[in-house]
Amino acid sequence: MKKSHLLKASLVMLSIILTGCSSLGVEPWERDLLAKDEMALSSAPLDAALDDHIYFSKEASSGGRSFGGGGCGCN
């Protein structure tokens, strides 16, 4: 029951995103700010890797942003 709700909600979300978002966005020549390295979603990948390792070994959660941490016997 709970799972099917979740699935439905995600499907509705996805369709809103795919239809509603076609009006969002920029033209190809308007990407001056978005093209900057510091505007990349993962603009400091090494910082992120180091943080993931710390928090994976000190807390009970991982993943979300990318594939969930792991690869160490630290938790």
Partner: peptide, 14 residues
């Protein structure tokens, strides 16, 4: 999703 010239959003499910 790029929202406008200044903003972008990411949504993930894992």
């Amino acid at each position: 999703q790029v929202i406008n010239r200044r903003m972008l959003v990411q949504m993930n499910y894992s």
